[in-house]
Design a protein around this nucleic acid. Structure first.
Length: 473
RNA sequence: GCCCCAUUCGUCCAGCGGCCUAGGACGCCGGCCUUUCACGCCGGUAACACGGGUUCGAAUCCCGUAUGGGGUACCA
């Protein structure tokens, strides 16, 4: 058996969304698993839709995800001559014919004849000749059934009475998706057509063309279960917030995205969900893809993304998070940002965030010149309810004045020592970390203090402690 | 309407006739750890749509019903 050839063939109708990305991924996984070839083909048969930016809107996210292709991108619009030649061939041998009926006329005829809505071969024997506005229809067989084996769905049967004479060339002379599909898949020697279930119904038509064109053995089909929204409807660009580009902006890692996408409609037999792409490639087979529609759960994506973020090495994390730290999100002067600080604190930040965009919040206090406002709840809890806080701050300031601030453990011992001493003296539990934290960061929760204090520096730490102490009087 | 497809915990996935008193993951709840917040660890919650067959035995096979989805264009 020769190596498979698959294709991802999106229509350039806007940004790439989660559903298309999943189709691309499954094609890619199959190609990589089998050592096959991935072809990228832009289905811009409807010329009015083609624009450069829409093409970029597809290529860029694919590259971001790490889904590469071996051939292409090809454009169906560039291959129109081939499609037209195929149409002509079919007209010549009688497999297709011209039709000049408008939609309204077709509907009227059906109603008149008491037939269900649809096209009932009205122009088959009218000997219409070609001209402006005249379409070409394929003469679909009246009897019999088309049967094909879908790798994922199994045997699918469609009776020919349910296939009307469909249009293969529009009134303006342009080929439709159906004929372009048959011609291109044949010309490109595509062996496996892997795509969304929404295209399942077009298979019999393409197969009819395939046979009429004398193409021989058709490709193997594999129709993926649809990705749906919470209403269980097919993901739509208009309705659903699913642009791949947005995920990048929010701080999802492409590796996490791909991992999450691979888990929709498929799962490894051993149940290990978060794993490197190399393993997914090795384990993935079309035969193990399931049949039912899947909802793309952001909570699960978040979890997977968090796992990938935790696994990042500090330098890489600092690098990836930088755009979020220096962009519009950053609540501090741009030049105050120091990448080394983030790298040093990376492990602490990494275990606390789900998306890269959440990172700035954890270190903003370090890059802010001073604490201008304190979180009210935190202040009340640590400073007001903690009655010993004035003494804690006084003693911490005192203890810290003689420290050099280059050893986190020393700072910890100094601050904690104050709390322990006071606890004994006042015979009650005195927390020293909380008031210090609020004084330094303005909040009661955050990353561990000690190492961060060495990075903030002695001057800034003492200034903030004194400012908070003064506020208590 | 007609055609096609699907139906296991709230969600995603496993299960392809006996190993299932249905397993894993996310979420949620509880606990442990912890002088912050997290992480981590432990435990709990929760599903085979329904009805008929077939079979010694069915979540797994067949039929029907219900429900959901997709398609039904000179979109792809």
């Amino acid at each position: 058996m020769t190596a498979p050839r698959v294709r991802f063939a999106p229509a350039p109708t806007g940004f790439l969304h989660v559903g298309s990305a999943r189709s691309a991924l499954f094609n890619w996984l199959h190609a990589r698993h089998t050592g096959g070839t991935m072809v990228l083909r832009i289905e811009d048969t409807d010329a009015s839709k083609k624009t450069e930016e829409f093409v970029d809107a597809i290529l860029e996210p694919l590259e971001w995800l790490g889904i590469d292709w071996d051939e292409g991108p090809f454009f169906q619009s560039d291959r129109a001559e081939m499609h037209k030649a195929a149409v002509e061939q079919l007209v010549e041998d009688g497999s297709a014919y011209y039709c000049d009926l408008t939609r309204d006329q077709i509907d009227a005829k059906s109603e008149e004849a008491g037939l269900p809505a649809g096209y009932h071969g009205w122009s088959r024997d009218r000997a219409v000749t070609d001209g402006p506005g005249v379409v070409v229809r394929f003469r679909a067989p009246d009897d019999g059934v088309t049967v094909f084996d879908d790798v994922i769905r199994g045997k699918v049967e469609v009776s020919h009475d349910n296939v009307e004479d469909f249009v293969i060339r529009r009134g303006d002379g342009s080929p439709t998706f159906l004929i372009a599909n048959a011609v291109d898949d044949h010309e490109m020697s595509i062996s496996h057509v892997i795509r969304g279930e929404d295209l399942l119904n077009t298979v019999p038509k393409v197969l009819m063309l395939w046979e009429a064109l004398g193409y021989g053995e058709p490709p193997v089909y594999a129709h993926l279960p649809l990705l749906v929204n919470e209403q269980r409807k097919k993901l739509s660009k208009r309705r659903d917030d699913v642009a791949l580009g947005d995920f990048a902006k929010k701080g999802y890692l492409p590796e996490a995205m791909v991992n999450a996408l691979a888990l929709l409609g498929w799962g490894p037999a051993d149940g290990v969900e978060v794993r490197p792409i190399e393993q997914i490639i090795e384990l993935f087979t079309l035969e193990t893809v399931n049949k039912s529609a899947a909802f793309f759960d952001m909570k699960k994506l978040d979890h997977i993304n968090a796992e990938y973020i935790k696994a990042l090495d500090p330098a890489r994390f600092a690098e990836l998070v930088e755009p979020h730290m220096t962009g519009d999100d950053a609540p501090w002067p741009v030049d105050a940002y120091r990448s080394e600080v983030v790298e040093a604190l990376a492990p602490e930040i990494q275990q606390r965030i789900v998306k890269l965009s959440e990172a700035p919040a954890w270190v903003s206090w370090i890059f802010t010149p001073s604490i201008d406002s304190y979180d009210e709840k935190s202040w009340n809890k640590a400073m007001v309810k903690g009655k010993a806080s004035p003494r804690v701050l006084d003693e911490v300031i005192n203890a810290l004045e003689s420290e050099s601030f280059d050893d986190a453990e020393v700072l910890e011992a100094a601050v904690m020592g104050v709390g322990n001493r006071l606890s004994e003296e006042l015979a009650t539990r005195v927390m020293s970390q909380a008031p210090v934290r609020v004084a330094l960061t303005g909040h009661g929760a955050g990353i561990p203090l000690w190492q961060a204090m060495t990075l903030l520096g002695k001057g800034a730490c003492l200034d903030r402690l004194r400012a908070a102490r003064a506020r208590l009087d």
